[in-house]
Amino acid sequence: MDKNRTEGAGKQAKGGVKEAAGKAVGNKRLEAEGKLDKATGKVHSAVGKAKDRERDKQKY
């Protein structure tokens, strides 16, 4: 598994926590940071998946 996938999953989780905390305390900035982290994590995961697919193609 590519490191981008693991980094992406971590960022998505961190973003979810930040977003939930921001909503809970009414902090719009924290909520926005969480949404940004989640989006960044999704991009990292997508890049990692693409790298994994390419690596798998080269094996066969």
Results as ranks from 00 to 15, higher is better:
29 R>Q: 14
41 G>T: 03
18 K>N: 15
4 N>Q: 06
36 L>W: 08
48 G>E: 00
56 D>T: 07
3 K>V: 07
18 K>Y: 12
58 Q>F: 12
32 A>N: 13
43 V>E: 08
48 G>L: 06
22 G>D: 10
53 R>P: 05
28 K>Q: 05
40 T>K: 00
59 K>E: 15
43 V>D: 05
39 A>E: 08
24 A>G: 00
27 N>G: 08
2 D>L: 07
9 A>Q: 13
49 K>I: 00
41 G>E: 08
44 H>N: 14
29 R>V: 04
16 G>V: 08
29 R>Y: 09
15 G>E: 07
34 G>K: 02
20 A>Y: 00
42 K>S: 06
23 K>H: 12
31 E>S: 13
15 G>L: 04
4 N>H: 05
16 G>R: 05
41 G>P: 03
9 A>F: 04
59 K>M: 09
9 A>H: 13
37 D>M: 09
15 G>P: 08
46 A>T: 08
60 Y>S: 12
24 A>E: 04
13 A>M: 12
18 K>C: 10
14 K>I: 06
39 A>Y: 02
41 G>F: 03
20 A>C: 09
35 K>F: 01
41 G>D: 05
4 N>I: 00
42 K>E: 06
35 K>E: 13
23 K>N: 09
22 G>F: 03
8 G>P: 00
23 K>W: 05
4 N>G: 01
46 A>N: 00
2 D>A: 06
28 K>P: 05
3 K>D: 09
44 H>G: 06
44 H>C: 05
50 A>F: 04
19 E>S: 15
46 A>K: 10
14 K>P: 13
22 G>S: 11
32 A>M: 10
46 A>C: 06
21 A>V: 01
34 G>C: 11
32 A>P: 03
19 E>D: 15
22 G>W: 03
5 R>V: 11
40 T>E: 01
38 K>T: 09
16 G>T: 05
11 K>Y: 06
4 N>D: 03
13 A>W: 08
58 Q>W: 02
36 L>K: 13
2 D>W: 01
7 E>H: 09
2 D>P: 15
54 E>M: 14
42 K>Y: 00
43 V>N: 06
7 E>R: 09
52 D>T: 13
38 K>Y: 07
38 K>D: 06
16 G>N: 11
38 K>A: 11
20 A>N: 14
59 K>C: 03
8 G>C: 00
55 R>T: 07
23 K>I: 12
34 G>V: 06
24 A>Y: 01
9 A>E: 14
10 G>L: 10
19 E>I: 09
7 E>I: 08
22 G>H: 03
26 G>M: 08
37 D>G: 04
12 Q>S: 11
56 D>M: 01
20 A>L: 09
58 Q>N: 15
5 R>N: 14
39 A>C: 09
20 A>E: 13
54 E>L: 15
28 K>D: 14
12 Q>H: 02
45 S>L: 03
2 D>R: 07
15 G>C: 07
16 G>F: 00
50 A>H: 06
56 D>E: 14
41 G>Q: 06
41 G>R: 04
53 R>V: 10
3 K>W: 04
14 K>S: 14
47 V>Q: 01
40 T>S: 08
19 E>V: 10
31 E>L: 07
30 L>A: 15
40 T>L: 01
16 G>Q: 14
31 E>P: 12
51 K>C: 07
45 S>P: 11
